[in-house]
Write a protein that binds this DNA or RNA. Structure first.
Length: 206
DNA sequence: GGCCAGGACACCA
DNA sequence: TGGTGTCATGGC
């Protein structure tokens, strides 16, 4: 059987192919975290429209979102889809932030396990969203797993592993890589980049 | 016209 | 704990 590339070798391959991605595409930590919620099961192009709306209304920060009614938030983020749900998620997040005086800095004083637990306690923040925030906003060495990650694993011969549960896939990567924020940052970004070049096989219409 | 996109949750057994 | 339905827009 042909030698299967290691997860680090796959990283090197992707980096050589696509180059540094310089993620996350956001100006501020708040924008990053809001984008993380908006992009759930949604194309980034649609998220960008929603982010633009929020920016135009000076609502691309939690203190602003905190005083907006859900209906108004929903209208602004409409292009991102699931807008009613996500408006509620954003509000749940701002409510949690109140416990930290609305300060991301204060929230981020928690150590990584406590911070992850706090993020996951917010309705609408699941494992991928929480880990994205941990890695790209709080800059903790946490590996992010998403649909592209599973697809990549399957593509490179990790078929069985690709069907495993979230935490086990994350462990697969963290066991194979040094716990380095910049490495995790780049790797996940490259996986997404790769995923956009390898779209899920569309069903043929006869 | 249907499928898909950088998920998460409620509800059920 | 595992499976299924729901949420919704915009591009292709």
């Amino acid at each position: 059987m042909k030698h299967r590339r290691s997860l680090f070798e796959i990283y090197e391959t992707l980096l050589a192919e696509y180059g540094p991605q310089e993620w996350w595409p956001a100006r501020t930590r708040a924008e990053m975290m809001i984008g993380a919620i908006l992009t759930q099961n949604t194309s980034w192009a649609n998220v960008e429209k929603a982010l633009l709306n929020l920016r135009k209304h000076n609502a691309l920060k939690f203190r602003a979102l905190d005083v907006l009614p859900a209906g108004q938030i929903a209208e602004l983020i409409r292009p991102a889809g699931y807008f009613n749900q996500k408006a509620g998620y954003l509000q749940a997040f701002t409510e949690m932030l109140r416990d930290y005086d609305g300060s991301i800095d204060r929230l981020f004083r928690l150590d990584t396990p406590a911070l992850r637990k706090q993020l996951l306690a917010v309705k609408g923040v699941g494992p991928e969203t929480a880990d994205s925030m941990l890695l790209y906003a709080a800059r903790r060495p946490v590996f992010v797993v998403d649909a592209y990650t599973r697809r990549l694993l399957a593509h490179f011969g990790f078929k069985k592993e690709s069907e495993d549960r979230y935490d086990r896939i994350a462990a697969l990567f963290t066991a194979a890589l040094p716990a380095d924020v910049q490495l995790y940052n780049e790797y996940h970004a490259l996986i997404v980049r790769w995923g956009k070049n390898h779209p899920k096989q569309r069903k043929k219409s006869s």
